[in-house]
Design a protein around this nucleic acid. Structure first.
Lengths: 173, 173
DNA sequence: CCTTCTCCTGTACAGTTGTACATGTACAGA
DNA sequence: TCTGTACATGTACAACTGTACAGGAGAAGG
């Protein structure tokens, strides 16, 4: 199943095959269909697990942000760390796009989205600014992946500074 | 080629097939390989055209924003309009994700990204806030697509208000 | 030792895929 | 009218796909 995630991250959720996963996991082809009746089951299960892990990862974010005295800098640090494992990050957006088309994937995508929004709402002024902050983070991550370049740290810093309630924002431009 | 775009929007860039496109376009299968040596060529050409259209669409945004007296409201209006054609919007993010994996698609993805960033930089305080604004818009669009729900208008409004330079922002919370 | 049962896996199959190519078809020049 | 040429398309094929399933391996119970 870990192999399935690696395969999805590499070739995309729509291109992954039974054989690809089996080879990568060093298990016979039959096993993949024995434990998961159909390929979709396998993919959905893999994505669910990845998201649960990411969600757990998000708890760490919450903690770090709650003790931070310079929110923009901390955000930059956290998002950069998230981008360190490009494949893992890609996986998240692979899931996003799949969820946009397959409603049965929406609950698992919502796991990440709601988590991110919750955390952001806590550090931003209110729910509106919090949701905006979450969208900012998602957009920054996505754009970094698309360009293949590094995170636009300056942009993220400025964005967070503008969205976080003034009293908690330290490094405002 | 228009048919190719429709097909990609419906099933995703990784699931589209020669036959699907041919059927949809009411042309024989051979035609698709006659005009485009390989399937990738067809997909890339289709995505390029879609992006060029979107880029042209973006010019309209620039104009509307330049005369707007309430930037947050105008942004909400524009993004909502963009979401009106869900399939078209999905296409953009389909391209995004494909570009994240295939470097040869990055220039065409950059066409949209740079356009959006340019416009945002013009209405926001500076390039940093402008880039943040672009990420915010991208994130909001993506999240609306993922959840299948409508745009989070309040969040977007609050976000734009926080990122746009105060003198040009009217409807601040 | 034999039976039975569960867990596993190699193999087979029907369906679909991208692509090549031989075959048609219309039209311009002579 | 004939011929050459560029364009278009139906068909064929090898490669690959998801999935079913017959049978092997090995332990548990007698």
């Amino acid at each position: 199943m870990t192999a399935a995630l690696a395969a999805i991250a590499e070739v995309g959720v729509g291109q992954v095959t039974h054989r690809m996963i089996a080879t990568r996991a060093n298990v016979p082809l039959g096993s993949t269909t024995y434990y998961f009746p159909t390929l979709d089951d396998l993919v959905v299960a893999a994505l669910r697990r990845a998201t649960e892990e990411a969600r757990a990862h998000l708890e760490a974010w919450a903690e770090e942000l709650s003790v931070s005295r310079d929110l923009p800098a901390t955000f930059v640090e956290l998002v950069t760390g998230c981008l360190a494992d490009r494949e893992q990050a890609l996986l998240e957006y692979e899931l996003y796009l799949a969820a946009a088309r397959a409603p049965e994937l929406r609950p698992v995508a919502a796991l990440w989205l709601d988590g991110l929004r919750g955390i952001c709402a806590r550090v931003a002024g209110g729910p509106e600014r919090g949701f905006a902050l979450a969208a900012l983070v998602d957009g920054m991550l996505l754009q970094a992946l698309v360009t293949g370049g590094p995170l636009d740290a300056d942009g993220l810093r400025a964005g967070v500074a503008g969205l976080v309630s003034p009293r908690t924002a330290a490094g405002s431009t």
